[in-house]
Design a binder for these strands. Structure first.
Lengths: 185, 185
DNA sequence: TGTACATCAGTGAACGCGCGTTCACTGATGTAC
DNA sequence: TGTACATCAGTGAACGCGCGTTCACTGATGTAC
């Protein structure tokens, strides 16, 4: 038997769980404070570990970033309608809780300068999002629907970026009006 | 005569020009690489000075950031139409030249975590932009026009953020379709 | 089942580097008479 | 107008700190017999 295939039950399960915890903590902290304002040591501490162990899981901080924002495996559960998604996307709750925020709205301009791996991951997520919206978008032709989907996804991200910069009154107005103008049900 | 009001002709003019050069270089470099990936020394070098002199002009890097993105004084020259502005905003040229890019599209998610001064400056710019678009936006009521303006500004920013993350084909498509979907002339 | 050995994930001190900021100094600019 | 002095913007070395990364070590996990 190839020893590489033998399972070291408990330990290997722990390793997998630790890595998952690191990725989860990283996703949360990066969204909250940006890639450059979160240290490897902080992420490890948030995952309940010490910083030295980091490099057993990832070759570098940059590699962690790419992996933390890899597209989730497609899950077959029924999803929210596009309209319901837009409601929760353009909500004050989403604006105010960075930890679970959409990565594009929380880190988009930083991601544009990120590694090719990170950008490829986020491009894939954008493709999926556009396809998802296209299925429910209004329009005569498939092309019209896709156009509406692209416009809707763009407007959601832009509105949330703005909403997190400006003062509360304008912020609330932007969320409300951007939602109302969205070409979705 | 109050000595503080006496002009030291040449020197003071140079100081003003040096400060302007620092602000200009900072704006360019920050847009290109993000706030955290540009050093004070680099900015000073780009302005033709050495790094030690920086603190004669600004109390801190953060203060420079706020000042570099302060709203320009309103200039009375005739402006582009909203449609022409949208054309150039959602162009490949704007996407590909970060140095003179719109600050929201280049730095928006970082600005959301910036100083209150920076955010106030950018909020003011957003207010102006919305007002400008409102004047030309379609709609029956003033409120409809303003809604269209908010939606348009959001979509422009979001589309440009996305266009700088994804691969070229999708990027070109996003710019084109977002432009076509814009509620402007 | 029990015992001796091997593995390796995690620990925490340490390293090296880069950055924001400070500071003593310089020399050109401007002032006083 | 000319000369002696004062000012102060800019210089560049230095400081102190924090961060990503490395590494010798540990001790629990897993293996061999």
């Amino acid at each position: 038997v190839d020893p590489g295939e033998i399972e070291m039950k408990v330990s290997r399960e722990q390793v997998v769980e630790h890595k998952a915890r690191i990725l989860e903590a990283a996703g949360r902290l990066f969204r909250q404070r940006g890639f450059d304002h979160v240290t490897v040591a902080e992420i490890m501490k948030a995952a309940g570990l010490t910083h030295g162990g980091f490099y057993g899981h990832f070759p570098s901080k940059e590699a962690l970033i790419a992996e933390a924002f890899a597209p989730a495996p497609p899950n077959p559960e029924p999803r929210k309608s596009a309209a319901a998604y837009a409601d929760s996307y353009l909500s004050a709750a989403h604006r105010d809780d960075l930890t679970t925020a959409c990565a594009f709205s929380a880190l988009g301009t930083e991601a544009a300068r990120g590694s090719p791996e990170l950008r490829a991951s986020m491009a894939e997520q954008t493709r999926r999002q556009i396809e998802r919206f296209t299925a429910e978008a209004p329009g005569e032709t498939p092309r019209d629907k896709r156009r509406a989907a692209i416009a809707a996804w763009s407007a959601m991200i832009g509105a949330m970026v703005l909403a997190r910069i400006v003062d509360k009154d304008l912020s609330d107005e932007i969320l409300k009006e951007a939602r109302a103008a969205l070409p979705l049900g």
